[in-house]
Design a protein around this nucleic acid. Structure first.
Lengths: 220, 220
DNA sequence: GACAACTTGTCACCGGGTGTCAATGCCGGA
DNA sequence: TCCGGCATTGACACCCGGTGACAAGTTGTC
């Protein structure tokens, strides 16, 4: 029962490889599933037996990475200081990106070629955010707070990562992550009224400042 | 030249209405474009002359709302305190959601029925986040910092909104937004070392704590 | 009323995605 | 070694989202 499994693995790798190369050369939208299958030496029908959709072949390691991250969360989470636990897990996870720079850069290039792909990427990100939220809840953070904190932390990190990708993955991610922390502290400091001193007219009560954004697309 | 425009508007509304009702009744994936067109009394080809894709008919007011938000950002942005400006813009924008509760709730229900729809929603959200980032940059915030702050603020708000939707849009959004601010201040306060006192072993220097998360899907 | 401009429906086609079925190849047991 | 069972595959037909082309019908204008 070994030859079977090996063949499956080989075929899967061939499909991923073919898709990757073609996407890189012609962009996601410029490649048909038929073509991917042809290059990999199988039929279109077989492609869909390995991947539920064309989108999925573009993110072949997502599942595995998500699980890895969830594991790190579980391992590092600290009931005494949930956010610190999340930060530790993230710090442990970031190495992934630092090492896979070149590959990531290539992938990033073709993810940007298709709106569909970008949208799926965002959906996958949402799963990571949800993992953080779930971890926070598991350790006692009330649901709403967990959602907000998860969004906040993840949003900031996604921003950083986006910038890092956009700049060609230059610079040490760990250092950048530390900078992000500094920025958060900056923020914390500037929340203290007397640290601002701007000419703004508004009420100068204890602290309170802005409100809360949103956005989103839905309609009636 | 008035009858033409009016007819177009009528048809557009009919398509939106038909799509909305059908999505609500059968879920996004359970509805075909043919069926939407049939209910609206036109041909499938005509549907695609009004909306570039089936996805777009699910978010018919996105463009308009995004522009509205961008306008608010431009109006409220304060070079002396960029974040406060963003907060003001968001506060002004939130009324939208508060008032359209029932409609939003219905839409939320069917957005959740389809992964494609959720992904598109995330993509639209990204445009709002980018609007914030751009506004921050326009007022002098360096690019990376702007990206991170945009992601942070937007992420937190999205978390809040998600929770609000999930809970059936109960509660006053403005109050919730204020709560979000409190939470941020909480965070700021707890960044101050002596406020924690947990059993954690780590170095106790000036302040520094965690690192920085990320996640995301890409692969090799 | 006639002609131009615009809008619409029909038809044919492409690509993603799925069900069905028959053929092939792998595996285990006798 | 041969045989039967099972998994994998290819071929085919089909559905749905989306587009180009063209002909027919409307609307607006002179």
């Amino acid at each position: 029962m070994a030859l079977r499994a090996e063949k499956k693995h080989t075929t899967r790798q061939a499909l991923i490889r073919a898709a990757h190369d073609l996407f890189l050369a012609q962009g996601y939208d410029g490649v048909t599933v038929d073509r991917i299958a042809e290059v990999a030496g199988v039929s279109k029908r077989t492609f869909f037996r390995y991947f539920p959709s064309k989108l999925d072949v573009a993110f072949p390691h997502h599942e595995e990475r998500l699980r890895h991250f969830e594991g790190l969360l579980a391992r590092h989470l600290d009931p005494e200081d949930p956010l610190r636990g999340v930060a530790r897990a993230v710090a442990a996870y970031v190495g992934f990106y630092q090492e896979a720079r070149e590959d990531l850069l290539a992938e990033y290039a073709y993810v940007a070629t298709s709106r569909e792909l970008r949208a799926r990427d965002a959906d996958l990100d949402w799963q990571f955010e949800t993992a953080i939220t779930a971890a926070l809840e598991r350790v006692g953070t009330p649901p709403r707070r967990a959602r907000i904190l998860g969004g906040l932390v993840f949003g900031a990190c996604r921003g950083l990562l986006f910038d890092w990708f956009s700049g060609g993955c230059r610079g040490d991610l760990h250092r950048l992550a530390r900078e992000l922390l500094d920025l958060l502290e900056d923020l914390a400091r500037s929340r203290d009224p007397q640290a601002v001193g701007g000419p703004a007219a508004g009420a100068r009560g204890p602290a309170r400042r802005g409100r809360a954004p949103r956005t989103g697309g839905r309609d009636a």
